[in-house]
Amino acid sequence: MRYKKAPILEAVLAFSWSSEKSLDELKEVLSLPAFERFDEPKPRIQVGASIDVDQGQFSHQQKQLGFEVALRNGSEIVFLEQRQFVFVQRAPYDRWAYFSEQATSLVDPVIKLLEVDAFERIGLRFVNRIDIPSRDSNGINTDDYVTFNFNGPREDRGIIEEFQMRVVKPTEKAGIHYALVLATTAPPMPDYVSILLDIDVFTKKVVPSSGIELTDTLDEMRIQKNHIFEECLTNKARELFGGVEK
């Protein structure tokens, strides 16, 4: 089952390993045929800054973590860093089969060339944004759309003006955990309000980089992700997604 207008803003599959790879090795990976359809790699830079208040000194550092490649139409992005491979599918999201095939077809040659035997962490993350039409300046009742809410200590006056929540906890499956973010966010259009629903399912166990255990783990993570998503929604929210395709 999939929604015709799935609220998925971004789908991400990330694989991390323990041993740091060199930038030269990463560059060699990106010259493989699997990456031919992507534009030229761009260095992926992280800038850090620190302030010593006593000395009144400020310093900053710049470090190249790896590379970024993207399709010309911007729909798929890969971050290849010294300890991780990240595949990002931007909206519009098509379906799981396409998404997972794209990710695995890219990560397979990566782990072969970099000789990665196991993943320290696998992350499957779907950032959803539920856009709710609202011409009413009094806001919306989030209980109509999502199933968890804020139970504060008092009633107070007026309404909640801003809301962010992040919860991290294990699933029922050993070694699989999740982080769930619910927050208000900027709507993409006038006369809408938007709710961010970010579901990040990840492993806390070492998983071989190929074979049935990897496949089973990914399948289980997907099941967990879908279950969490559905459990967060009301039918009124589902009505916003244009119905389902079997």
Binding site: S137, N138, G139, I140, N141, T142, D143, N149, F150, I159, I160, E161, E162, F163, Q164, A183, T184, T185, A186, P187, V193, S194, L196
Partner: peptide, 12 residues
């Protein structure tokens, strides 16, 4: 729970 979207989060 009711809220008005004030566009505060994420900050943009």
């Amino acid at each position: 729970m009711t809220f008005v979207d004030t566009m505060n989060f994420p900050r943009s």
